[in-house]
């Protein structure tokens, strides 16, 4: 068979079955196997930073032992080869704390975001699909949560529930499920009249079948973008609560480093703030900015598909 014949056959096959030929791939780049190409430069940088932060966290967990909580030098050392970011007032290596803090921050962020994303989209789907009083109830809750100032509520809740990482995750999730819920409800409303959902309902499908089989896969990319934003939000919220003293004092999150450093009397009169206050702040900012970048790219991709 000549190569021409082969390509002709392939094209015919593609015409008949709409198969995955080269032409098809080019026209639909997001279904291709290289999702990296979908990211902008900022997105790629964001992804790199995110991966780096994650890697330091994992590294600290695996190889750094107790360096983040046991003194390894004199107190308040300046940066040196031994302690690249110096030590704090107790002589504990700040770089090691920062690495461990990455772990805590990322965990809190991811935990809260996943919780809020999953719960929010489940509630949103229910509201959109069921309509009637469940819809009114859930939408009303969304409105109330949007109207209430978040920070005071968070502080009150954090204080009320007591200081622990788990509680912070819970509080942040509780306050940020509104976004995914609204997105899920809107998308569900628009999909509810799709005939495949009408057909499934005809066959007697329950809400859980329709949600799992038809709604969730379509919602996933939309909710993913909003979940990424919640990660950023959750990391800042955790840092904020911890900074205010509502965090778990035994944890070594970035917020806790900030809390300790900034409560060190007269830190701005010395040079210590350069390696004690600045690094966790920069790390926080970078984490938040990088998730924002990725979320922006993801939104673009999702919108284009719509």
């Amino acid at each position: 068979m000549s190569s021409q014949e082969v390509s002709l056959r392939r094209r015919r096959f593609a015409l008949r079955f709409g198969g995955s030929t080269a032409e098809k791939k080019r026209s639909a780049p997001f279904r291709a196997h290289r999702p990296l190409s979908a990211l902008s430069l900022c997105g790629k940088a964001g992804l790199a930073v995110l991966l780096f932060i994650l890697a330091t966290g994992v590294f600290s967990l695996l190889f750094m032992g107790d360096a983040h909580r046991v003194p390894s030098g004199d107190s308040l050392e300046s940066p040196s080869l031994r302690h690249i970011l110096g030590t704090d007032d107790l002589g504990i290596d700040i770089a090691a704390q920062l690495c461990r803090g990455a772990m805590v921050s990322v965990l809190v962020g991811l935990g809260a975001a996943v919780l809020a994303g999953a719960g929010g989209s489940a509630l949103g789907m229910l509201a959109g699909y069921a309509g009637g009083w469940p819809d009114r109830l859930i939408s009303g809750l969304c409105d109330v949560l949007t109207a209430i100032p978040q920070l005071p509520l968070m502080i009150v809740l954090g204080a009320f529930l007591g200081p622990s990482v788990r509680n912070i995750v819970f509080v942040v999730a509780l306050l940020s499920w509104v976004g995914p819920a609204r997105i899920a409800r809107a998308k569900t409303l628009s999909m509810r009249r799709e005939k495949f959902i009408v057909a499934a309902a005809c066959y007697g499908a329950s809400f859980s079948h329709i949600a799992a089989k038809h709604l969730a896969p379509a919602l996933a990319p939309l909710v993913a973008a909003s979940v990424l934003r919640i990660i950023g939000h959750a990391v800042v919220a955790e840092a904020g609560l911890t900074f205010l003293g509502l965090g778990d004092p035994t944890s070594k999150s970035w917020g806790m480093i900030l809390n300790r450093s900034m409560s060190f009397g007269g830190i701005y009169f010395t040079d210590f703030w350069k390696w004690w206050v600045l690094p966790p702040l920069v790390a926080l900012t970078m984490l938040v900015v990088s998730t924002a970048f990725i979320a922006r790219d993801l939104e673009k991709f999702v919108n284009r598909k719509l």
Binding site: E194, K195, F196, V198, A199, K213, H214, P217, A218
Partner: peptide, 12 residues
């Protein structure tokens, strides 16, 4: 149904 594209879920 009338619309074949809506009658089946394209992701399944």
């Amino acid at each position: 149904f009338q619309d074949p594209l809506s009658a089946t879920n394209e992701h399944l």
